[in-house]
Design a protein around this nucleic acid. Structure first.
Lengths: 355, 355
DNA sequence: CTGTTAGCGCCTTCAC
DNA sequence: GTGAAGGCGCTAACAG
């Protein structure tokens, strides 16, 4: 079932079939109708592989992520796919799993497939791959990484403003002893969040608290839990904590509960991301929402733009919104909690159980 | 940068290049070395589009899901991708979003791209699409749906045994008034789970309880919550509840807590799936684990098998494992809770707030 | 062993 | 308006 069959059956040349299928105006309405009818009858569909070979473009866009298991991968994919489909592109997904060899393999494959553009939604990517694509004039879009240039676009999340939204919410509730549980220090976007927090705390109203206000987590539940336990062991103890992401915040809430305190009555918790789970935690998590579907939409759009303009890179900025749920409450100035006698023992016990 | 360039630079014919690249033994070691060297120098990579055009195969596998937002899509993708990559295939993902037009579009695209096989991991698929693929001899693999046949494989989850694992765990703890919150009745696999439950309850030891032991949910948190509230309003009230999936179980736990009772002291809860979140609920959820990465692995494997055997369909069976966490406890025969006076009012209040 | 040639299915000048 | 012909890059006979 090729274009030839259609041509023969319609009594025309293959060029005419091709033309009608592409809506060329230089085909008489009658012939066009006849061709279309045959196409319909035969259920003919052009072989896009052949089309690609001729055009040199595959009408496929790549989406590279580090870890599929990441709770917001689905949303990322969804937004990307929506825009891609709208523009006539299919999506080829590749997860690197932080595996260098695998990453290299994926990059190679995409190149061999003459991919029309690639969104790199992970920070851990070998810069050399970037050149590999650039050299072949494949549009690229990064998330929060690198500068915009020819063939290179970027979607930049305003983490600073996001952290500020969370912190201001907390200060608005009267909190002053606000702690921060960061993500892994190796992650640029995590450092950005922590630095933004530290910058906010340089305001005199926070006094000397700033010095020991942060603990490092790992952007996962266990890391948040352990970091929070360390925070709880301090005196004075924070009355509120802002986490670098929601998973961390969930871990923090667990730690607080295990310690025998309550959220938000004793300690308020704010997350970052607004993953689906955030709505269903106990209590529902107040968090800074980062619309990941939107991030992905922008990324895909950047790619499409870059393709049509033959290489122009664009930079999109993405802002966040505060979503107030029930993990934050008014700070009770009267309730200046200090560790009671029994607590240290409990803490040790818990920490041990976790290791 | 094509095979010709390499041939010219290496002073050989293009066929020789092609042969060496495919490890054909009929190339003298010297020539091969020379060719490989040039390939290296030029960084030549064969154009897989051209290869596909010749072979008629794309080395791509399709993965069709209904809703990417589904909490276990990532794992599904992960398992599938792993096996696909191992076998030299790339993965083209398509989410239908329950949208008929979009589904049709995806199917068309995959066909045009000469996809080598498609995994349909959603139950809502128009049977006609199945024929569309079958006619073109594209291997298909379904999840729990349809019969195995030429070009059609199936991965079948043993829901019956899974539900039994959960229920037996509960009966082992002494529970007899066990309720079940089902999924949407429109979903075949959900019906299967409920029916399995009902079958188990026909054992005389459950007495007449069976008659009103189930409530319908929607496989989401809100549905589980509402269904549980209805269950709580009954007299006698269940001492344990098995949910059709984890999201439902989470909703049920919320309802129980809102009602002023505790999990597992007052009511035990068992989920199904073992989504990542299950580990982090409060209390951590006892559930029947369905290894989704494994399901996807099998699906992909079925596709690969079907490709190499040129159409043989296979059926894989997938079993489940019980994961005991902390949402289940011994039934206290002595604690035969009956609704107290104040409760109905509270219940109504809650239900209203939810609607 | 290795080079030449004929397609794979389609698009796109170029003549008619 | 429409048909014929020349590639796109590669593989697979078919000759040497």
């Amino acid at each position: 079932m090729t274009i030839k069959d259609v041509a023969r059956r319609a009594g025309v040349g293959i060029a005419t079939v091709s033309r009608t299928l592409h809506g060329s105006s230089q085909v008489s309405p009658e012939t066009a109708a006849r061709v279309l009818k045959v196409v319909e009858e035969l259920g003919y569909r052009p072989n896009s592989t052949a089309q690609s070979l001729v055009s040199g473009r595959s009408h496929m866009l790549g989406l590279v992520v580090s870890d599929i298991t990441n709770p917001f991968f689905p949303e990322l994919f969804k937004g990307f796919e929506d825009v891609a489909l709208q523009n006539g592109y299919d999506v080829l997904v590749a997860s690197t799993n932080y595996d260098t060899a695998r990453t290299a393999q994926c990059v190679q494959r995409m190149i061999e497939r003459k991919i029309d553009g690639v969104a790199i939604m992970t920070s851990e990517i070998d810069p050399s791959h970037k050149d590999t694509f650039a050299r072949r004039k494949v549009p690229l879009v990064f998330l929060d990484v690198g500068r915009v240039g020819r063939w290179v676009s970027n979607v930049k999340v305003d983490y600073g403003a996001g952290i500020a939204q969370g912190v201001e919410h907390l200060t608005g509730l009267g909190h002053r002893r606000i702690a921060f549980i960061s993500g892994p220090d190796s992650l640029a976007s995590a450092r950005e969040r922590r630095d933004a927090f530290l910058r906010l705390l340089s305001d005199p109203c926070f006094g000397a608290w700033r010095e020991a206000a942060t603990e490092e987590g790992n952007h996962k539940v266990d890391g948040g839990l352990k970091a929070m336990l360390r925070l709880l062991a301090r005196a004075p103890r924070p009355t509120a904590v802002m986490a670098s992401n929601d998973l961390t915040a969930i871990g923090a809430m667990r730690a607080i509960r295990q310690w025998g305190l309550r959220v938000p009555e004793d300690i308020s918790v704010v997350g970052f991301d607004d993953i689906q789970m955030a709505e269903f935690t106990e209590p529902p998590l107040t968090t800074v929402r980062l619309l990941r579907t939107e991030v992905a939409r922008l990324a895909c759009d950047a790619l499409v733009q870059s393709i049509v303009t033959h290489g122009t890179g664009v930079e999109y900025r993405m802002s966040t919104t505060l979503v107030v749920r029930q993990s934050t409450a008014q700070a009770l100035a009267s309730r200046e909690l200090l560790p009671s006698e029994g607590e240290p023992a409990i803490a040790e016990q818990i920490v041990t159980a976790i290791e």
